[in-house]
Design a protein around this nucleic acid. Sequence first.
RNA 1: CGGGAUGUAGCGCAGCUUGGUAGCGCGUCUGGUUCGGGACCAGAAGGCCGCAGGUUCAAAUCCUGUCAUCCCGACCA
Length: 573
Amino acid sequence: MKASNLFYPTLREVPSEAEIASHQLLLRAGFIRKTSAGVYSYLPLAMRVLRKIENIVREEMERAGGQELLMPIIQPKELWEKSGRWSVYGDEMFRLVDRHNRGFALGPTHEEIITTLVDAEVHSYRDLPLLLYQIQNKYRDEIRPRFGLMRGREFIMKDLYSFDQDYAGLDISYQKMYAAYRAIYTRMKLNYRVVEADSGAIGGNESHEFMVLADSGECTILYCDNEICDYAANVEKAECPAPDEPSSPSKMKTVNKIYTPGLRTIQDLVSDLGISAQDQVKTLMYSVDGEIVAVVLRGDRDLNEIKLKNFLNCRELFMADESSVRAQCAAGFGSLGPLGLKAKIYADLEVAAMRNFSCGANEDDYHYINVNMGRDFVPEAVVDLRNAVEGDLCPLCNGNLQALRGIEVGHIFKLGTKYSDALEAGYRTADGEEKPMVMGCYGIGISRTLAAAVEQNNDNNGIIWPMPIAPYHVIIIPVNTKKEEQMQAAEDIYEKLIRLGVEVILDDRDERAGVKFKDADLIGIPVKITIGPKSLQEKQVEVKKRWADDTELIDIDKVVDVICAIIKEGMEK
RNA sequence: CGGGAUGUAGCGCAGCUUGGUAGCGCGUCUGGUUCGGGACCAGAAGGCCGCAGGUUCAAAUCCUGUCAUCCCGACCA
């Protein structure tokens, strides 16, 4: 491709709307343009990267036994009513009506469609397992689109669905996908981690997320620092083992009510009374399917709402507002405590191990000190409810947890029979029995992966594409296009590389060298060949790898071999 | 949806406090000189000051509403 013909409108300045590196660079380097919040056009360079990511994904899906198909984006309302998700999915679904006033949704995901399709066509155990996938736009009316391609309302996703006879079969399909996902991110040369994840509302009992590591990532990952332990989990999932009982179980002191005017927060008690947060208990009131319940945690901990929701197995859960709290006990937010509460109390494991702690007295401007669980109040249940934090004990070994930030680029779930039950997708077993298919679903955010790759591979000058997903492998820059011998040498190398199947840009624009160097760095082409007057006299050209500091002088008749070797090396390992 | 911020030329911004002919840099176009890390000179084009009301002799500027975008929170590929 000649740069003079390539549509890549680069920007010298950082667009004011972009905050993080990948968003800024993709805009500046002419890869994407915004149409509206969370909706983007992909320009030619981005398209090439997307195709490369997709092809790696395709190869690994096919290798694992997947077959590609393409399902509709426009999906009828009835299908979603049947699965029960028309109402559950809520505002996140783009909805529309046709001229006959029939309801539709723009597909946020495809469980309904694929399950219906497979149910209609697959009837026998002989046809299972079946692994079907597609690569397609998805539509989710996100509460908050963010960071360019990172969280769009329209985005490209690969989704594969597995259908098996039983859970043993699902385990095999799941393992295949797990391995395929590892292969995909390894091939793309991204620094990633697999973590245990919560399967959430989608159902099922096992789930893993694939996280590309980046400081700007929206997810917190906790992993064990013990080398022989491979525990890693999303913060929402990470378990907090029960702490040891206090070594001297005696010494429960007498409860004492103290006057604490104006002290409302954990921090207030720390600074005014010198009671450390670890010696306080905080009480949070939640509305759970309409019922008010209390949750108690150590003062310095954060509640993990997902753990609470999973434990209570409820449909709806949100923090109670102050008026409904006051209806429960004669106090507001700053003075809540577990003593004498009518509401059910759920205590975090850690609270059981605390002695003589402080908490609100359920009376405005009063707190209790020397409170002990069991003696002074009895919770409905004692369970793991808090967010794990860095430094916590590993749930599997005696290591400690470390924290990292990550971008979720893939997520795999065991669905079980949630959708095959709802949509009545069954098959006949060898014994003639009718059974529901056991399903799994496996997603990869293709467009998000592109952004994550940039987030992880850039410097002050621009993007540094990993070779396997670079839009082009090589860019040739004749320093001065008006000098015939430079252009001749450039064209010559260009032709040779093209004949060898190398993806190469020849920057034939009549621009100053500096402009071309800046653009080449910005768009992140892995290898740059510079053809200048001095080296050309010696029958040499300069070769520079985008990620390296040094420039090599290469004999002009060897340059093609050198380039091919660099590309080969970049594709492997 | 709650909190915060911003909308002025393709991009980045100033002007708004104290109302009075809309500016700067980059980019674009023309001509010339340059030519190894975002050149220089000369000239030119380009604006419903987000939109709608209001106040005023007069509004980019003051007031009200509205829309859009971005950031922080409940989420997720």
